[in-house]
Design a protein around this nucleic acid. Structure first.
Lengths: 109, 109
DNA sequence: TTACTATATGACCATATACTCATATAATAA
DNA sequence: TTATTATATGAGTATATGGTCATATAGTAA
């Protein structure tokens, strides 16, 4: 059985993984690779409502993935932990493998 | 605005990220680091119902994170893409940063 | 054949998540 | 002061997810 310590760790890790696990949030992270951006630019880039984008951003801030600074009316967000980007290279690997598996399956028909 | 191509990629990536983003599934991945295991052993290790564990496993299989082989009555699961484990070192980094931020906050009081 | 074991899955319910609309907050400018 | 702009958030709704129980499937053994 899992120790309490491990259980707690896995919960925290899942919290952070959940904060990434949404197409719009991934799009936001991808957009912020280039540097800090305001909510308005992010919303325009990913093509979603301001209120929705604002909510997705706040989820990632709470998880510790993004940080921000205020400048006049605007709030500029940026990636806090760029290693998150490495995650996507792994995920891309999984996707490539899935494509390969599908090819094998097709070839076997 | 996002291209269709990017939108599709982000959806696929989110699908895989979601498949990891649950404490029990993270526990399963952690347990499988040591090698292939049957559902019964996994369920015993993480302390959850067999049916529940079976469902979580099938989510990860569908996402391409786990693969399996059958041996008699048992089905032995293993990690298909060990790079997933790298993800957790990044996540741990995020957690450590959060602790540091909290310390700063406390020190400022 | 029947009995037993390991795993998967349908049906159900409770909770969480995502989204939209309207509104609140806050900085700026006239 | 009022108006404008950028962002955040409450309320409501629709959908997704997680969990349990009971049952189905399938391999093994007697």
């Amino acid at each position: 059985m899992l120790s309490k310590k491990k259980r707690l760790l896995f919960e925290k890790q899942a919290e952070i993984a959940k904060a990434i696990a949404h197409p719009l949030r991934i799009a936001i992270v991808d957009f912020l690779k280039a540097g800090e951006r305001c909510v308005c630019d992010i919303a325009a880039n990913i093509g979603s409502e301001q209120s929705n984008v604002s909510r997705h951003i706040s989820i990632m801030v709470k998880a510790g993935l993004l940080e921000y600074r205020k400048e006049g009316l605007k709030v500029l967000y940026r990636l806090k932990t760029p290693c998150v980007l490495d995650f996507f290279s792994c995920v891309s690997g999984v996707l490539k493998q899935r494509v390969k598996d599908n090819e094998k399956l097709l070839a076997a028909l």
